[in-house]
Simulated assay, not measured.
Amino acid sequence: MQLVVARIGRAHGIKGDVTVEVRTDEPELRLAPGAVLATDPAATGPLTIETGRVHSGRLLLRFEGVNDRSAAEALRNTLLIAEIDPEELPEEEDEYYDHQLMDLDVVTRDGTEIGRITEISHLPSQDLFIVERPDGSEVMIPFVESIVVEIDLEEQRAVVDPPPGLIDDQAEVASSRDES
């Protein structure tokens, strides 16, 4: 199974370093020196990580054979893809890989269908589920314990207990305000 683990950003300096937007919870495992990553577009890869370091809160990587700013800049916006064993599980009990959560059905505690997870957005403060509703619209649900109360991989569902207004249609929210 393939998993997008990062997107290459700007070149940094003149020796071929690039900034990366990390898209994995385990950058120390997936983006370590020696890791060989497939790329999208495929024509730019595979790439082997030569060095990695954090600079001003950003991860910088240098790839074998990318030795100057021009070569690094040519990689901008390339997705880095790791090959993952689908049976591999995170070390912590309540942790999940993105691929385990993708396409899970999202329901409330009482069984009301909300939609299915189509994307997971990793933000600095928290992760978000991007959930596509049956009508095609999307809703963002923070992946925090107080809202996502259960992940059931066997049943392929995420059970949520959203606060008022998080998932309700705007019309419902407005009408409840009018009634008060």
Rank of each mutant, 00 (worst) to 15 (best):
M102V: 06
M1K: 06
A43Q: 14
E92R: 01
L3Q: 09
R157L: 12
D103H: 13
D85P: 01
R10T: 07
N77K: 13
V173W: 04
E88Q: 15
D152P: 02
Y96T: 11
R10P: 07
G16E: 02
E150K: 14
V5C: 05
I141W: 02
V149C: 08
S137A: 14
R53K: 03
D161V: 04
D169I: 08
T24W: 10
I8K: 07
L101R: 09
S56M: 03
R157K: 06
I49M: 06
S176H: 08
E138S: 10
E50R: 12
D103N: 12
E50L: 05
Q100T: 06
D110W: 05
T118Y: 15
T108Y: 15
Q100P: 01
D168K: 09
Q100I: 07
P124R: 09
R69E: 10
I151M: 10
A158Q: 00
G16K: 14
R76G: 03
E172S: 15
L75T: 04
T24G: 03
I120W: 09
G52Y: 01
P27R: 03
I81Q: 02
V131E: 00
E150N: 10
G115A: 06
I14L: 10
G9H: 09
D103Y: 07
I147G: 01
L29C: 05
L47E: 03
E150Y: 14
F63D: 00
D98S: 05
R157Q: 13
T78D: 07
E145P: 01
Y97K: 08
V20G: 00
G16A: 14
R133I: 06
D161I: 04
G9E: 03
A71I: 10
E155N: 11
E93Y: 03
I8H: 08
D168V: 11
I84T: 10
T118F: 07
P134F: 03
